Amino acid sequence: MSTSTESSIRTAMQSPHIPAPRFRYSPCVRIGFNYQVSGMVALDPASGKLETGGPGAETTRILSNLQLALPDYGLSLDELLIARIYTTRMDAFSEINAAWETIFNDGLVPPARTSVGVSALPLGASVEIEFSFVKSSVSV
């Protein structure tokens, strides 16, 4: 079950199935039909440590963590509008794509996607992904 904090029009949501934020931010924010999931790095839910194994393994962990949290947010991958991928390893982008394609295969329409090369990411990660969702209806 997720926990949420509401302000006037914005609801902050959390999932007990993924590591809690280490800094002050909301893992997911809902405004109306729009949901924004904060950038996720590849933290293991059990240990809270960064996944090892490079960009492919990190991407797999991020997508796995997203799937763990989605039921708590009341979302599904079918409602994913866009993903923004940040990586310090554009030279290994094929590993990121391979992990991505295990989830977004022929059976699921992939979202729009932006990929950006950066010089550094939080906690020494090589991949961070943020996600934007839109629901067709909102239940409160």
Score class of each variant (00 low, 15 high):
35 Y>M: 04
140 V>Q: 15
26 S>G: 11
22 R>Q: 10
45 P>Y: 06
75 L>T: 11
23 F>I: 00
54 G>R: 12
10 R>A: 10
98 A>H: 03
55 P>R: 11
84 R>K: 13
136 S>K: 07
135 K>D: 03
97 N>T: 13
126 S>N: 07
14 Q>W: 00
69 A>E: 06
37 V>H: 06
97 N>D: 14
30 R>N: 06
62 I>W: 01
114 T>W: 02
130 E>C: 08
42 A>P: 00
38 S>V: 02
43 L>N: 08
20 A>F: 00
38 S>T: 12
22 R>D: 06
85 I>M: 05
26 S>T: 12
10 R>C: 05
42 A>Q: 05
49 K>G: 07
88 T>P: 01
125 A>Y: 01
20 A>W: 01
57 A>V: 01
94 S>Q: 08
120 A>K: 14
120 A>Q: 12
12 A>S: 12
83 A>N: 05
117 G>T: 07
18 I>S: 02
28 C>G: 06
52 T>F: 00
96 I>N: 07
31 I>A: 08
135 K>V: 04
97 N>R: 15
64 S>V: 01
19 P>E: 09
104 F>H: 13
100 W>H: 10
8 S>F: 02
57 A>R: 14
75 L>Y: 07
36 Q>M: 09
25 Y>L: 04
22 R>A: 07
109 V>T: 15
138 V>C: 05
63 L>Y: 04
51 E>K: 15
109 V>Q: 14
32 G>L: 04
104 F>T: 10
9 I>Y: 08
105 N>Q: 15
105 N>S: 15
38 S>N: 12
124 G>M: 06
108 L>K: 11
119 S>C: 05
72 D>Y: 13
97 N>W: 06
11 T>P: 02
112 A>F: 00
10 R>W: 03
17 H>F: 05
108 L>Q: 13
16 P>N: 12
24 R>V: 00
89 R>M: 01
54 G>L: 06
90 M>R: 11
53 G>H: 11
20 A>T: 05
42 A>C: 03
96 I>P: 00
78 D>W: 03
133 F>M: 09
25 Y>P: 00
125 A>S: 09
64 S>E: 06
125 A>G: 06
34 N>V: 08
53 G>Q: 13
78 D>Q: 14
66 L>G: 03
28 C>M: 07
55 P>Q: 10
2 S>Q: 15
73 Y>I: 06
93 F>E: 13
98 A>V: 00
112 A>R: 12
67 Q>E: 08
56 G>K: 11
47 S>Q: 08
67 Q>N: 10
12 A>W: 02
75 L>M: 09
57 A>K: 14
93 F>L: 08
21 P>Y: 08
118 V>D: 09
14 Q>S: 12
28 C>V: 04
35 Y>W: 04
15 S>T: 14
48 G>S: 10
36 Q>G: 10
91 D>N: 13
105 N>W: 06
68 L>T: 08
39 G>N: 11
55 P>V: 09
46 A>D: 10
37 V>Y: 04
39 G>E: 13
